[in-house]
Amino acid sequence: MPMLIGIDIGGTNLRLGVVDDAVSIESPKPRLIEEMRFQADFSSLCKQHQCEPTFAWQKILSTIANAINEVRKQYPEISAIGIGFPGFIDPHTQVISQSPNLPGLQDVDLSKDLTALIGLPVITENDALAAAYGEYVMHPSRLNNLIYIGLGTGVGGGLILNGLPFQGAHGVAMEVGHIVVKDGGRLCGCGNFGCMEQYASASGVAISYFELAQQHCTAAEIARRAEQGDTSATSAYALAGKSLAQALAHILKVIDVTDIVLGGGMSAAWPLIAPSFQQQLVQDLIPALRGKLNLRISNMGDQAGIVGAAMLASHSND
């Protein structure tokens, strides 16, 4: 039975799944056999070692390789690895040119370096694009065109166009988190100011809350406080919703897609985000698009990125 490993790498997490890609008429979708989590705070690691990025990169490689090798003990029939990685990835060489939420990493080749360690083919794709592809392959009707936006430590985006993941000429297509929504706003890891992910991500919500309440809290704790009536917490999530809507309205003016999927850990706080999001989206959308969008919150949780990465690895051998 053909098996693959799909890996979803975030700034603060490492999720891995074993995927059976033996798709048939009886079983038209790939099957996630088992999902595992490994401790890996790569964001903090990279921040602590910005002056010695080679050390951080070797630590990242060894952590991923060790996790894969542990899984292969149980599933020796694994044939390839697909990885969703947060960064700008050249679609021709697979070199990661930059990862704004993993500072210091520049022009690294995860596919090549990891293959040398584990002896299996590795395909690396942007994490949000891998999640978009996962949403596509697992949807009952295989939506040929969809936009995926992942709200996590940062904000990523992926586009499925005519049933295929769209990478762009340089691997930076759909980097929606870096659409500027506030002129002269917060400094972003990409080097610009006022990017949407500085307001609509988990880290952005934490910054907003600190500015309002002078307290350091996680996005999850801020959500709990908002539900208890904390006005600063409510305002932090309202700003997230407004910023997300501003960016999405601009995206839809360029890419006329009906189906939008929101995922990532922050999507669990959608009831706190939705009011300001919906108000701003109606205001910013061109009239021709109002009332014509199908927006849903992903019900796949962590699995979209895992399955999508695995299936991209499978198709790379077609």
Score class of each variant (00 low, 15 high):
residue 214 Q to Y: 11
residue 242 K to N: 08
residue 186 R to T: 13
residue 203 S to P: 01
residue 254 V to T: 14
residue 187 L to T: 10
residue 215 Q to F: 12
residue 243 S to F: 04
residue 244 L to K: 01
residue 240 A to Y: 01
residue 263 G to F: 01
residue 245 A to F: 08
residue 232 S to D: 09
residue 276 S to K: 10
residue 246 Q to K: 11
residue 268 A to G: 00
residue 227 E to Y: 14
residue 264 G to N: 02
residue 248 L to A: 03
residue 207 I to V: 12
residue 208 S to Y: 05
residue 261 V to Y: 04
residue 270 W to H: 06
residue 239 L to S: 07
residue 199 Y to G: 07
residue 189 G to D: 02
residue 260 I to P: 02
residue 221 E to Y: 15
residue 242 K to R: 10
residue 183 D to L: 15
residue 239 L to P: 00
residue 210 F to W: 13
residue 257 V to R: 14
residue 182 K to G: 04
residue 247 A to T: 07
residue 217 C to M: 11
residue 219 A to Y: 01
residue 209 Y to R: 06
residue 226 A to Y: 03
residue 190 C to G: 03
residue 253 K to V: 15
residue 268 A to Q: 02
residue 207 I to F: 14
residue 190 C to M: 05
residue 277 F to L: 07
residue 254 V to P: 03
residue 262 L to I: 12
residue 191 G to M: 09
residue 207 I to A: 07
residue 220 A to I: 11
residue 260 I to Y: 04
residue 265 G to V: 06
residue 251 I to R: 07
residue 216 H to F: 14
residue 202 A to Q: 02
residue 232 S to M: 15
residue 199 Y to S: 09
residue 236 A to T: 10
residue 262 L to Y: 00
residue 249 A to C: 10
residue 198 Q to H: 03
residue 235 S to K: 08
residue 187 L to R: 12
residue 247 A to M: 13
residue 252 L to G: 02
residue 237 Y to G: 00
residue 247 A to V: 11
residue 221 E to I: 10
residue 226 A to T: 08
residue 199 Y to N: 06
residue 185 G to P: 04
residue 255 I to L: 14
residue 255 I to T: 13
residue 207 I to Q: 12
residue 238 A to V: 10
residue 228 Q to A: 14
residue 188 C to V: 09
residue 202 A to I: 00
residue 193 F to M: 13
residue 189 G to R: 03
residue 249 A to V: 13
residue 219 A to Q: 03
residue 226 A to V: 14
residue 206 A to I: 08
residue 185 G to E: 04
residue 182 K to M: 14
residue 273 I to K: 01
residue 233 A to H: 05
residue 190 C to V: 10
residue 275 P to E: 09
residue 233 A to Q: 03
residue 250 H to R: 13
residue 241 G to S: 12
residue 254 V to E: 03
residue 193 F to R: 11
residue 252 L to P: 01
residue 226 A to I: 09
residue 181 V to N: 02
residue 272 L to R: 04
residue 195 C to I: 06
residue 269 A to D: 02
residue 270 W to Y: 10
residue 227 E to Q: 13
residue 247 A to N: 05
residue 247 A to E: 06
residue 218 T to Y: 02
residue 245 A to R: 08
residue 188 C to S: 05
residue 182 K to Y: 12
residue 194 G to E: 05
residue 272 L to I: 11
residue 228 Q to F: 07
residue 216 H to R: 11
residue 237 Y to D: 00
residue 181 V to T: 07
residue 272 L to A: 09
residue 196 M to T: 06
residue 193 F to T: 14
residue 258 T to C: 12
residue 259 D to R: 12
residue 231 T to A: 09
residue 273 I to E: 00
residue 186 R to K: 09
residue 210 F to V: 10
residue 203 S to N: 09
residue 277 F to G: 02
residue 240 A to S: 09
residue 244 L to F: 10
residue 274 A to G: 08
residue 271 P to V: 08
residue 202 A to T: 01
residue 237 Y to N: 02
residue 240 A to G: 05
residue 275 P to G: 10
residue 208 S to N: 12
